[in-house]
Nucleic acid binder design. Structure first.
Length: 823
RNA sequence: GCCAGAGUGGCGAAAUGGUAGACGCAGUGGAUUCAAAAUCCACCGGUGGCAACACCGUGCCGGUUCGAGUCCGGCCUCUGGUACCA
């Protein structure tokens, strides 16, 4: 064995060994327990960043650990290759999205390999390849045939200068990122998938996902937002353009008698009709169009409104209620109308203050909550007041039922379950995505592309002009023929969340040509046992993937109900306390560190610096420290082997050990137990590494090679190498060889804990007086509690603190502490 | 705005209701060296004390408990998401 640690040659050779032996290629094997470990596949943006390194190292460590547990481990990798950045990069670099993307994939694949990740590359896929997206297109047409797909008008951000649709990301302070012009809202027809049909199941199945972080389940629950409420019909006092009434939905029908005005969306047909003869209203509606469509902007912007000059009739009191138009009501969602109860809704309260609208309190506190309607809305559920003799005095539930019943009897309302979740709009007006497989005949009638005409190929040899999608500009591409009839192709492409919603399933059979999935392979490997990715995907990606999974199940493509059994959401990588980003100029290039220290050092630091869910603060000094540790490990093994070559290693006799050797052997087995738990259950890789560091520190304290020393040392070093193998696979491979093993460390079984080695004669305990530590004890393992108490009370420093007090209680926590309560 | 997290030494962190700061980084002192690098040893939250030790200390305020960084209530700050970034 070489005296010094040279990562560059070791890593090159070990990676070659893995390639030569196809070490990570797997196939279905019904005899063996399978383990499918998946990291969220990357967008091929150019080169790896530290977030990728962290994500993929975590997944690789889990994969390698599970392999050492004897599982048949699948760890695939691929590319989320469609998306907006490729279009911008193509324009900036005077190329097209496809070649830019392919060259990025090529480079990043090399980087992933240089980090030593254990991928089965025979399953690699890129979502921009027709082999992949053709099945997505096929599936969409199946959903269409099942009535799960429909087209409707929806609002987008419109850049009036560039005449193009902008992503939310491209709207900065309400203006287009290139033109700088105020963006406008524009309604265009778009395709939707009925995720709301699955809302109930997506919600209830969250309860099954016991190995998901509770925070993610909570966020998804809130996002789906199931509520019970009442849909209420308000008649107009006088019809407008033939419209006689409109509906609103509320979860607070108990506040119905406190309604003092109504608000409609600017695009509401009533508003549009009235605007025909009202120039001021027309101008106001036009001003409402000049705002971005995202929710955060909507929620924080100044709420404005304008009286329409018409009244609605309150469904219970029969009184007239003025109708307003407001910029904060959206036509896309719900009915485009809301009832306003300023006394009991803070947003309505502020609006009413601003426009000096009446505020009518109809709920009073049921307990001692403060309530000052002049200062703020009272939003807590309470007891009804000022609501008429039939309702006054009722609590929330009783009032809900009484008012809902009265409305139903009058034909003015019905109890409904509502979901905050909206249907999934999948149309994008961009080029670099999977073409939506729909055709339009001469009459504009929509026809799904029949299976034999799939895939609808996206042309890759295109010129980007920065404004219009090349397939929208290409009149020839748009033309097609079906059964001898001229038809026109849909030129919108899919949301890229479509591709990332089923790639995990395609990895089980990436080359299958007879269908979207090979059911045998899918049913063997799925569900994914461990999914690893950023917390930023907690809602959208993970919800869409869960939805797609159920759609595929209902199509008979696979059998299980949920795609991901266990989920780990890793934190961000920070530098100087902030997220690494090009604009902040605080990025760290993983490649430079791999070149300088080797992949093992980068992997080790990434896993050591923080637990996976937490954000990780990058530290160049810390990386150097990790490298130092690997050198120490190398040296410890090298020194041991030198001594062993001279003295020979005796057979280990655990029963004969005494003193420091017995302590070290106990430490070895405690460490094996702790690290196994840290990897498998807790997933705290940082503490696992710390435990091995402690073990190595103990080994380095031994200073002779007499008797059993080398045997105990050998066992400790072999354990250290095995325990670290998932994290630093290259150096472990080489050290395992050096320690005389024929088979590779990737196939070594996880070391077993010898419970006899864990036994102790005595246990350290702490003595507290009133919860403060006052002394330490070393007690025999079998000492009776009464004796321990006596020993504790006899301690000099304990006596000092209970002097003059009477002991009220003595609490003994076995093997930990004694607390003496005295006053 | 709304939903979900996080906050502990100079820094990254550990402590699964039971000794706050394991492990590492930085730093200080020493050994080794012609010298340096590397390596090894020791110290390393604050205040007081020669020391033994004591007091204070986990964002802020309050509560539960024999005992709270950990559980509960209320704040503050930061982070992620907010449906067309991925």
């Amino acid at each position: 064995m070489e005296e010094h640690y040279h990562p560059e040659t070791i890593e090159r050779d070990v990676q070659q060994f893995w390639r030569d032996n196809q070490s990570f290629k797997v196939s279905t094997d019904p005899e063996k327990e399978k383990y499918y470990c998946l990291a969220m596949f990357p967008y091929p943006s150019g080169k790896l960043h530290m977030g990728h390194v962290r994500n993929y190292t975590i997944a690789d460590v889990i994969s390698r650990f599970q392999r050492m547990q004897g599982k048949n481990v699948l760890q695939p990798m691929g590319w989320d290759a469609f998306g907006l950045p490729a279009e911008n990069a193509a324009i900036n670099n005077n190329t097209a999205p496809a070649p830019w993307t392919y060259s990025n994939i090529d480079y990043m694949k090399g980087q992933l390999n240089s980090l030593g990740f254990a991928y089965d590359w025979s399953r690699e896929l890129a979502t921009c390849q027709p082999d992949y997206y053709r099945w997505e297109q096929w599936f969409f047409t199946r959903l269409y045939e099942k009535g799960l797909v429909y087209k409707k008008m929806a609002t987008v951000n419109w850049d009036p200068v560039d005449q193009t649709v902008l992503a939310n990301e491209q709207v900065i302070d309400g203006r287009g990122w290139r033109s700088g012009e105020l963006v406008e809202r524009k309604e265009i027809p778009q395709w939707f998938i009925k995720i709301t049909d699955y809302a109930e199941e997506l919600l209830s199945d969250l309860d099954k996902l016991e190995q998901w972080p509770e925070q993610v389940r909570t966020m998804q629950r809130n996002w789906i937002g199931k509520s019970r409420g009442v849909e209420i019909t308000f008649d107009l006092a006088t019809p407008v353009a033939g419209i006689e009434r409109f509906d609103v939905y509320t979860t607070r029908p108990d506040t119905l008698m406190g309604v003092t005005y109504m608000t409609l969306a600017a695009e509401h047909p009533i508003c549009l009709a009235l605007a025909e003869s009202n120039p001021d209203l027309k101008a106001y509606i036009a001003s409402c169009k000049k705002q971005a469509v995202n929710e955060a902007t909507m929620a924080t912007m100044a709420k404005t409104g304008m009286a329409l000059g018409v009244d609605a009739i309150h469904p219970l009191s029969g009184e007239k209620v003025p109708v307003w138009v407001g910029n904060y009501v959206l036509m896309d969602y719900g009915s485009g109308a809301v009832m306003a109860v300023p006394a009991h809704d803070q947003r309505d309260w502020e609006f009413a203050q601003h426009y000096q609208l009446p505020v009518a309190q109809v709920v009073a506190p049921s307990g001692n909550e403060s309530c000052d309607i002049k200062a703020e809305a009272f939003v807590i559920k309470g007891i009804l007041v000022n609501s008429g003799k039939d309702f006054d005095g009722l609590g929330f539930d009783a009032a809900f039922d009484a008012i809902a019943t009265r409305l139903a009897a009058a034909g003015k309302g019905r109890v409904t379950t509502n979901f905050r979740l909206r249907d999934w709009g999948v149309s994008r007006q961009r080029y670099w995505g999977a073409p939506i497989p729909m055709l339009y005949n001469q009459d504009g009638l929509e026809i799904p592309v029949p299976a034999h005409k799939l895939p609808v190929l996206l042309p890759e040899d295109v010129q980007m002009d920065g404004v219009q999608s090349p397939i929208k500009a290409d009149l020839a591409w748009r033309k097609d023929e079906l059964d001898g009839q001229a038809v026109e192709r849909e030129t919108d492409t899919f949301d890229t969340f479509m591709e990332s919603s089923w790639y995990y399933a395609r990895f089980t059979c990436p080359d299958y040509t007879d269908g979207m999935l090979d059911k045998t392979a899918a049913d063997y490997w799925l569900p994914v046992d461990q999914y690893v990715g950023g917390i930023e995907h907690a809602i959208l990606h993970l919800l869409y993937a869960r939805f797609f999974h159920k759609l595929m199940r209902d199509e008979g493509l696979l059998s299980c109900d949920e795609p991901f059994t266990r989920l780990l959401c890793q934190g961000m990588v920070l530098k100087d306390g902030i997220k690494m980003s090009k604009s902040k100029g605080n990025t760290v290039d993983p490649q430079a560190l791999i070149d300088q220290y080797g992949a093992d050092t980068v992997r080790l630091f990434t896993m050591f610096a923080a637990p996976p869910e937490q954000s990780l603060e990058w530290s160049d000094e810390g990386v150097a420290g990790s490298h130092r540790f690997l050198r120490k490990l190398w040296k410890a093994v090298a020194t041991h082997l030198e001594k062993a070559a001279v003295a020979g290693v005796p057979a280990l006799d655990g029963n004969a050990l005494q003193g420091p050797l017995r302590d070290l052997r106990r430490k070895t087995h405690e460490t094996i137990a702790k690290v196994g738990n840290d990897y498998g259950q807790r997933q705290t890789f940082n503490t696992a590494i710390a435990a091995v560091m402690e073990l190595l520190n103990e080994v380095n304290r031994l200073d002779n090679s007499a008797g059993q020393t080398l045997a105990v040392e050998r066992e400790a070093l072999e354990a250290a190498v095995l325990l670290l193998a998932p994290i630093v696979p290259h150096i472990s491979h080489r050290l395992w060889q050096a320690l005389g093993h024929q088979s590779a460390v990737i196939d070594a079984p996880w070391p077993a804990v010898d419970s006899a080695a864990l036994l102790r004669d005595s246990i350290p305990m702490v003595v507290q007086v009133n919860g403060k530590v006052r002394a330490q004890l070393d007690v025999a393992v079998d000492m009776p509690q009464a004796e321990i108490e006596a020993l504790a009370l006899a301690e000099e420093n304990v006596q000092r603190f209970i002097d003059g007090l009477s002991v009220r209680k003595v609490i003994v926590v076995a093997k930990k502490l004694v607390n003496i309560v005295a006053n």
